[in-house]
Amino acid sequence: MESNENVNRAVQLVAEHSIEKSSEVLTKMLNTTAKIELKNVNFVDITEITASVNQSDFEAIGSFILLSGDAPFKFLFYVQLEDAFILTDLFIGQKVGTTKAYDEYVSSTVQEIGNILSSAISNVFASDFQIKMLPEPPSVIRDFSGTLFSELIMDMALQEDKILLIESLFEIVETELNCHMYLLPIDGSERILGFGAGI
């Protein structure tokens, strides 16, 4: 148990660092302040976390990315469908409200934001833990937020009832736009990270 807590602490510190880096990158990219907050780094019960996500289920678009290497992770970034239109306008640099329907620009924006965030995060994890970590090509999926989340944790939840989840919530200032980002260590990555941190 103590070992779990130490791994959590090590992962939390690095996650905080990677979130700071992501905020900087996203702020620069969107030309408006993006405040990313690390909401939780913890072993969560699969029933409780999925019930919580299903409670406020909405239509969403998300980018799934596998971060492969020494300590593989799954990454998911998702946003409410209507909010993805605003994100697209900010990303392209056009007046907010221009994008009114889902199209390839919306899909590309979510894909690109997923790429940039996951790259920023994997760079920090790779450098702080001295490991190899590389983002694979993303899959952009439109579905219910509950479905996106359950598919993220599915492979891990088949084996475990509690999973280590890094959860972030971020807002794009001046737009009231909320985005969700999750990182899930897979295949025993949390133990590898604990080893890398000298735990």
């Binding site: 699969i46 029933t47 019930a51 996500v53 299903n54 579905d143 939840a157």
Partner: peptide, 20 residues
């Protein structure tokens, strides 16, 4: 209802879940 759980009840309750 989340993954790996069940809920039981009676009228007028509505039980909800989201699936993949």
């Amino acid at each position: 209802v989340g993954i790996g759980d069940y809920k039981i009840g009676e009228a007028p309750y509505v039980i909800r879940t989201t699936l993949g």
